[in-house]
Every structure is written in C-alpha cells, then in structure tokens.
Design a protein around this nucleic acid. Structure first.
Length: 263
DNA sequence: ATAATATGGTGAT
DNA sequence: TCACCCTATTATC
C-alpha cells in the first residue's frame, strides 16, 4: 500500500472528508491518547504530504503520520463503526470518520519539528514545485548502487520498493549499477517518469507502471490489469523479452529485475 | 494454532 | 548488518 502516491491520496481524501470542521480526535488503543486530548475538538485546517509523510494541521500544531510498512487508514461517511483492534487514532467529524492503525509514527509536532523532519527529505516527485536537481546530483556522485539510492528518502522522497523496481526496468537500468556510473540524463529521465507514474498512482489509488502494449490482461471491467513489469514477478518471464525475472536483497529490501532488459 | 509475508524506518553494533 | 517496531491477511500445519 504505502508508497508516496498513497500518502498524497490520503492527504487529498482527508482534506475533502474532514477539513474545515471540528474533529473529535481519540486513541482507543491509548498510544496516542495524550496528544489526541490536546487537539480534540479543534478544526483540522489543512492536510499535506511530503514523500511518505502525512500531515494534519490543527491551529499551530501538526499531527505527523508515517504509515511504515503496516500502517493503514480507513474511513467512511456517517457514524464510525465500533472501535476494535489496535486503533491508534480515530478522527470523527459530523458526517465522516477516519481510523488509523499500525503506523510507524503518529505524533504531534510544531512548525520547527516539521521543518526539521522535512529537512531530512529529498525532493518529492509528487510536489508540483519539486526540484529534481539535488537528487540527480546526489545519485551521479555516489558510489552506492542506484537501487539503494532510490530508496533513500534523503535523496528523493516517496519512492518505495515497487516504484524502485519498476522505474529501473522502464529505463533499462541494472539496480546494482553505482550511481556515479549513470548518465545524468538517464537519472533525470527516471525522475520525470516517476512524476508521471506516481501521479497516475494518486489518481488510480494503486500502482500501475506497465504500458498497455506490454499487458497480457488489458484494463477492463472486473479484470485485473498486469500492473508491474518486475516487482513481485521473480521466476516469471519478463513481459518484454521472456527472460526469467530475478530477485535479490538490496539495501535490506527485495529487488526484482530482468537480467536482459536491465543489463 | 502458528508462521510467513508485506509497497518502511530507526537505532545499536 | 542486525534487531526491532508496527498490524492484518494469507498460507501452512
């Protein structure tokens, strides 16, 4: 679920569903209870996202949420369902609600705390004003592998394991290539591709990185699209060249690639 | 019933 | 490089 596109989609959804009205904030599970009491009843004035970080603004404070690998938001119109399980944060307005479970981070912070956090993040392809040049410069100067660099949120923010594998495939780049061995033009092209792919991900609510001509199963009602080239396809034939897709550990995460298309 | 898995990240060694 | 945190769902016994 949660790469940058999911977080931007949540920011947009929470803005529409919850913003502009007083919010009843609670933490049935208890781990966010004290902070929840501080902002309970205040108006949610805005929402924002940077990379995989989500922010809710209340007066002069922010709620910062990072879903991590397991975190999820659910929501709905009308009355919230009975609270069950480990419900870290519940937001309720007059006609809607949202529930947060399993986040890595759910905390209250002020402007300086938020600034310090954003200071550690690289540019986010989903922010309209993003400047890719520092990210490109870091990649082409580094001896680390490009697969490692793409997941480093201080290089660029929002890319996760799926977009990493897919953008490398789409540009024919071996994940184990040192960043400094790449042409800056290729890195820049990958950035612009990520902008397109991730914006599509925000709209669709899921990751689709394949071009229509590479899909065996086309988009259609009640039919699942072939959404990825290599992610999760180890042992299966490459959609372009039929070579067997490989998997390996890279930076404590599993990377997938085609040994022929990404030679 | 228990284990394995997952699109993430931190802090210690 | 490892241990660990967070939760739900699916697979395996």
């Amino acid at each position: 679920m949660p790469e940058g596109h999911s977080i931007h989609r949540l920011a947009r959804r929470h803005r529409r569903l919850l913003a502009g009205r007083p919010v009843a904030v609670s933490s049935p599970q208890g781990r966010f209870a004290e902070a929840a009491a501080t902002i309970d009843g205040q108006v949610l004035t805005s929402t924002d996202a940077w990379g995989k970080h989500l922010f809710h603004r209340y007066d002069d404070l922010w709620v910062h949420v990072h879903l991590g690998l397991f975190g999820r938001f659910g929501d709905g119109r009308g009355e919230p369902p009975e609270a069950r399980g480990a419900l870290r944060m519940r937001l309720v307005v007059d006609d809607a609600w949202a529930d947060l479970r399993g986040p890595t981070a759910c905390e209250l912070m002020d402007d300086s705390g938020r600034a310090a956090l954003l200071d550690r993040l690289g540019p986010d392809p989903l922010r309209p004003d993003a400047d890719p040049s520092p990210a490109v410069a870091k990649v082409v100067r580094s001896r680390r592998t490009v697969g490692d660099l793409l997941l480093d949120q201080s290089v660029l923010a929002g890319v996760g394991n799926v977009y990493r594998a897919e953008v490398l495939f789409r540009h024919g780049v071996d994940p184990f290539t040192p960043g400094r061995d790449l042409d800056p033009g290729v890195v820049e092209a990958m950035w612009h591709d990520l902008v397109v792919l991730m914006e599509a991900g925000v709209s669709a609510g899921r990751i689709v990185t394949t071009e229509p001509e590479d899909r065996e199963r086309p988009a259609g009602r009640a039919r699942r699209v072939d959404s990825s080239y290599v992610y999760g396809r180890a042992g299966l034939p490459c959609r372009r060249c039929r070579s067997i897709v490989r998997r390996a550990e890279l930076g404590a995460r599993t990377v997938f690639w085609c040994p022929v298309c990404q030679a």
